[in-house]
Amino acid sequence: MANILSQIIRGLRKVGHRVGDQIWRLGAGARLFFLTLTYSTECFRRPRLIVREMYFTGVMSLIIILVSAFFVGMVLALQGYNTLQKYGSSESIGVLVALALVRELGPVITALLFAGRAGTAMTAEIGLMKATEQLSAMEMMAVNPISRVIAPRFWAGVLSMPLLACLFSMVGVLGGHLVAVAQIGVDVGAFWSQMQANVEFVDVTNMLIKSLVFGVACTMIALFEGYDAPPTAEGVSHATTRTVVISALSVLGLDFILTSFMMV
């Protein structure tokens, strides 16, 4: 009896410890976020730092994002045509592709790919910098690692994400155009005019807002996981895994919250 009781208590203690740990990490992440904001004046004075990081996060993610956008658009057009033609409205295929891409898939898939392509790289890089004591060396030289390492990467990620989401949506629409017009034979004029009649400018600005929020979330998670990683090979690998998992979950959760605000 006492044995079972102690086992239950041990289980509860484990749960409590994990919950407390997560709350501690959340607070530490928020603290790093505000520290990044306060220390980001230096990287605005030296925009070259941001440009350099934008090359590694934005430009390097370009190919994976453009190629997947093209395929996503083509698949949307194929699937949409399959159902729409049953109701004799295959001209609305442009509306379906554009609305799906602009409202949801553009920002969300871009953020997921970004977390996988750029976020993991950031986490691993900063984790290794920490493991090899480069961050401590910077502090020794009176260089603030947050303003020199974290802030430029943060702003590069935040700026890259909306650009990438715009490109994703546009290339996706072009992919849908290729399948709908060239392969299936939907009328070009109907494809574009129906799209323009049903996609509002608000949808485009909402897409920008969504991708900005996702940019902040994904980049901050990646940076914090790297900054917080135990300075071992195992610690860095775990941190990289956590970056992808937490980024994906928070992007999808934030997407629900943002969408419910925008649909009012």
């Binding site: 602009v102 909306p162 715009c166 574009w192 009649a197 400018f201 949808d203 485009v204």
Partner: peptide, 14 residues
């Protein structure tokens, strides 16, 4: 990115 944004605003959106 900026070109894509303007294309979205004018060609896709109305």
């Amino acid at each position: 990115g900026v070109a894509a944004f303007f294309a979205l605003a004018t060609k896709v959106g109305n």
